[in-house]
Amino acid sequence: MRWIWIDRFTNFESKKTATAVKSLSHAEDHFGEHFPGFPVMPAALILEGLAQTGGILVGESSNFQEKVVLAKVPNAKFYREAMPGEQLTYTTDVIDLRPEGSVVKGRVTSGDDLIAEAEIFFAYLDQSRSAQLFGDHNFVFSGELKYLLGLAQRAALGDGQKA
């Protein structure tokens, strides 16, 4: 399974806010098992989409030099299920952006409906320790995330609304 849970950014203001959308297709594997005959998106995957949106927002603030990892979800609330055919909008706002870590507040909507809200705490992997373990390669922002990251950067430059 491709581990990318947002489709594209629709808004990106560096160090402030990022909005991404995700269209839910019945063809996605998780709907087959969650649950047979009653397809609803697993809440953890909704949270992952929010974390990817917020993680790129945080990562961009340091020009993707840091390895941003999800450290803690202090709270998350889920208001209703998300079903195939819906388009989720993930909006994340920076609460704290610090060298030690960052916090974003996020909300997930589908049309006018509030689907979920969560606060997400990101930490940065220690540069020297991470180099020992993984080398210089930034494994967090690679592959598919890097593609989206390009879109996010273009959006940040102001020409990416429809990137």
Binding site: A71, P74, R98, E100, G101, V103, F121, A123
Partner: peptide, 9 residues
């Protein structure tokens, strides 16, 4: 450990 940072923030 991460909670200590969260508490400080």
């Amino acid at each position: 450990s991460i909670d200590f940072l969260d508490i400080v923030f």
